[in-house]
């Protein structure tokens, strides 16, 4: 083994040991805040791992979503839980009170740590046995992808798989995003954001970095057909910008009228569906792009999906339907 190989092996070893160690801290550390920070660290460590395992697209998604956005969501949830006083802004229900109250405690008993450890040990042993016996050299579907990609003008194989070969999965995945927004909105109005005044420093930071982030999002989208990137990574960039703006006290969605917000959320999935159905109209299969226009169609789908993903992620971060919603659901109590 040459020197470079040795360095690589040492690097791998460090990461391989560090991952479960940080995970243990994220799950078990006594302080919840510390647990969240360690969870964010785990996300970054995973992103590093994806780079090392030659998956740069996944690394971008993980760093932005798995670590960045999840971290923001967890921290804001922790802050909201800390602000929660029982009984305040309690939602009314159309059921009588004795029914909506939680059932008596004896109905469910937490599992003992010993039983859980036993279960986990069995699972880990089984999985280890399976992983060890997997074939150690296998190319998977890589040759098949390499054979088919040249038909399209897409050098990024992951984008090819995500939006072309397995575009149907991606359509359903954008459906999951849409569904998550519907679920969060159905749970009630967004809680009031914390009232701490954003100082000039954060305002200035957002002012400087904001335009660059929009630029980067556009670049990730455009370059995503040939280099790492794509609609998800670009959309998350926009979402992150929205979260930053919220933190700086400029709530980006509050100024949008209700219909515009709903249109922004729905347009990505709707356009994807429309393209798919149009293909049927042309006598092809659903989502079967014609050779000549495949790249243009994919970029079109990705561009609208990017905007929807960005708006959806900011809506998820807001944690409820916007107060400005004028759809007749305003002040919509159950």
């Amino acid at each position: 083994m040459d020197a470079l190989g040795l360095v690589n092996a040492a690097f791998d070893l460090v990461v391989i040991v560090l991952l479960p160690a940080v995970a243990l801290g994220a799950v078990m550390s006594a302080d919840l805040f510390k647990a969240i920070i360690l969870f964010i660290t785990l996300g970054l460590l995973l992103a590093l791992t994806w780079v090392r395992l030659a998956a740069p697209d996944v690394a971008l998604a993980e760093a932005a979503i798995g670590s960045g956005l999840m971290g923001a969501l967890l921290l804001s949830a922790r802050e909201r839980l800390a602000r929660t006083r029982p009984g305040r802004d309690r939602r009314t229900s159309h059921y009588p009170r004795w029914m909506t109250h939680p059932p008596p405690r004896r109905s469910h008993r937490a599992v003992s740590p010993w039983a859980a450890s036993g279960l986990v040990l069995i699972a880990v042993a089984g999985l280890t046995a399976a992983v060890v016996t997997l074939p150690h050299e296998a190319a998977g579907l890589a040759p098949e992808v390499a054979r088919q990609t040249p038909q399209r003008d897409l050098a990024n194989q992951v984008t090819f798989v995500l939006l072309d070969a397995r575009g149907y999965d991606t359509l359903l995945e954008i459906g999951v995003l849409l569904l998550a927004v519907a679920a969060v909105w159905s749970l009630g109005e967004a809680p009031e954001p914390p009232q701490n005044a954003a100082g000039p420093m954060l305002q200035g930071f957002v002012g400087t970095v904001g335009p660059i982030m929009v630029l980067v999002a556009g670049y990730l989208l455009w370059a995503g057909t040939d280099a790492p990137g794509g609609a998800f990574q670009a959309g998350v960039m926009l979402g992150a910008l929205g979260v930053l703006l919220s933190l700086a006290g400029r709530h980006p969605l509050a100024r949008l009228p209700g219909w515009a917000l709903r249109l922004a959320v729905v347009s990505g999935p709707m356009l994807f569906l429309a393209v798919g159905v149009t293909m049927i109209g042309l006598g092809r299969h659903f989502l079967e792009y014609p050779q000549a226009h495949a790249k243009a169609l994919i970029l079109l789908i990705e561009a609208t999906a990017m905007i929807s993903i960005g708006v959806i992620l900011v809506s998820l971060y807001a944690g409820g339907r916007p107060l400005s919603d004028e759809s007749g659901t305003r002040k919509g109590r159950l």
Binding site: I65, G140, L141, L177, L187
Partner: peptide, 25 residues
């Protein structure tokens, strides 16, 4: 590297963050 699992994991990450966001709310 096989790009198919990469695509599936990106899908999985997005699904996981959606579910987590709903769970947190």
């Amino acid at each position: 590297a096989d790009p198919v699992p990469h695509a599936m994991v990106i899908t999985g990450i997005v699904v996981a963050v959606c579910a987590s966001a709903v769970a947190l709310v």
